[in-house]
Amino acid sequence: WVPTKREEKYGVAFYNYDARGADELSLQIGDTVHILETYEGWYRGYTLRKKSKKGIFPASYIHLKE
């Protein structure tokens, strides 16, 4: 896992994603996520609506905010 280059990196989910394991994070369309790390097509972070739950999710489900 590699920390993100920018201190504040955010994105928005444009697909729903159902977590398949305890380390994964479920997403709903429109969720804003804070991205902490990246690795081979995956991000690690949390949604702003539930900051206490961190997990991994596919990068392809996220539109990055500039």
Rank of each mutant, 00 (worst) to 15 (best):
residue 1 W to E: 07
residue 1 W to H: 07
residue 1 W to F: 08
residue 2 V to M: 12
residue 2 V to N: 11
residue 2 V to T: 11
residue 2 V to H: 09
residue 3 P to C: 09
residue 3 P to E: 09
residue 3 P to Q: 05
residue 4 T to F: 08
residue 4 T to H: 09
residue 5 K to E: 10
residue 5 K to I: 08
residue 6 R to S: 12
residue 7 E to N: 14
residue 8 E to F: 12
residue 8 E to Q: 11
residue 9 K to H: 11
residue 10 Y to A: 04
residue 12 V to C: 13
residue 12 V to S: 02
residue 12 V to F: 08
residue 12 V to D: 02
residue 13 A to I: 04
residue 13 A to Y: 04
residue 13 A to N: 00
residue 14 F to K: 15
residue 14 F to R: 14
residue 14 F to E: 08
residue 14 F to D: 06
residue 15 Y to G: 13
residue 16 N to L: 05
residue 16 N to Y: 06
residue 16 N to P: 12
residue 16 N to R: 12
residue 17 Y to V: 03
residue 17 Y to P: 01
residue 19 A to D: 02
residue 20 R to V: 11
residue 21 G to I: 05
residue 21 G to E: 09
residue 21 G to A: 11
residue 22 A to P: 15
residue 22 A to Q: 10
residue 22 A to D: 13
residue 22 A to S: 11
residue 23 D to H: 11
residue 23 D to T: 06
residue 23 D to N: 11
residue 24 E to R: 02
residue 24 E to N: 02
residue 24 E to Q: 08
residue 24 E to S: 04
residue 25 L to A: 00
residue 25 L to H: 02
residue 25 L to W: 04
residue 26 S to I: 04
residue 26 S to H: 04
residue 26 S to V: 03
residue 27 L to Q: 01
residue 29 I to D: 02
residue 29 I to W: 05
residue 29 I to C: 10
residue 30 G to L: 02
residue 30 G to E: 01
residue 31 D to K: 01
residue 31 D to G: 02
residue 31 D to E: 08
residue 32 T to K: 12
residue 33 V to A: 01
residue 33 V to K: 00
residue 33 V to G: 00
residue 34 H to A: 13
residue 35 I to N: 09
residue 35 I to H: 01
residue 35 I to Y: 01
residue 35 I to P: 00
residue 36 L to P: 00
residue 36 L to E: 08
residue 37 E to F: 08
residue 37 E to R: 03
residue 38 T to F: 11
residue 40 E to M: 14
residue 40 E to N: 14
residue 40 E to I: 07
residue 41 G to R: 04
residue 42 W to V: 00
residue 42 W to R: 00
residue 43 Y to A: 05
residue 43 Y to E: 00
residue 44 R to V: 07
residue 44 R to I: 06
residue 45 G to H: 04
residue 45 G to F: 07
residue 46 Y to D: 02
residue 46 Y to L: 03
residue 46 Y to F: 09
residue 46 Y to T: 05
residue 47 T to F: 05
residue 47 T to A: 12
residue 47 T to K: 15
residue 48 L to R: 05
residue 48 L to E: 10
residue 48 L to K: 05
residue 49 R to T: 13
residue 49 R to L: 09
residue 49 R to F: 12
residue 49 R to C: 15
residue 49 R to D: 13
residue 50 K to E: 15
residue 51 K to F: 08
residue 51 K to T: 10
residue 52 S to C: 14
residue 52 S to Q: 11
residue 52 S to H: 12
residue 52 S to M: 10
residue 52 S to K: 10
residue 53 K to S: 07
residue 53 K to Y: 08
residue 53 K to R: 11
residue 53 K to L: 11
residue 54 K to Q: 12
residue 54 K to V: 15
residue 54 K to T: 14
residue 54 K to D: 05
residue 55 G to H: 05
residue 56 I to Y: 10
residue 56 I to S: 04
residue 57 F to T: 01
residue 57 F to P: 02
residue 58 P to S: 03
residue 58 P to V: 06
residue 58 P to W: 05
residue 58 P to T: 04
residue 58 P to D: 03
residue 59 A to Q: 09
residue 60 S to T: 09
residue 61 Y to M: 13
residue 61 Y to R: 05
residue 61 Y to Q: 05
residue 62 I to M: 00
residue 62 I to W: 02
residue 62 I to D: 01
residue 63 H to L: 13
residue 64 L to A: 02
residue 64 L to G: 01
residue 64 L to I: 12
residue 64 L to T: 06
residue 65 K to T: 14
residue 65 K to P: 08
residue 65 K to N: 11
residue 65 K to Q: 12
residue 66 E to D: 12
residue 66 E to N: 13
residue 66 E to S: 14
